[in-house]
Amino acid sequence: MLISARMGESESGGARILVVRCDCGFEVRGTGDEVVERMQDHARNVHNMTATREQVLDRATSA
């Protein structure tokens, strides 16, 4: 439920566009699933980090 709320689903069921910014300046925007996948790739490939879905979405803001 928390993740669903963080994804910013609108009342009509469409997904909002989210923005997630890494401390290094890297930024991704897209739906919840898109930002999670791309930010997890960035964390793993650039920072050798494992980021959970919750950690990514906790940084998300609405575009």
């Binding site: 290094c24 920072h47 050798n48």
Partner: peptide, 21 residues
Amino acid sequence: GPCGPEPWYLEVGPDEDPVEV
């Protein structure tokens, strides 16, 4: 580097060798 002018931070796990990472 990948973070431009910002410092590039890498996480090193407890079983990893920092130089190797």
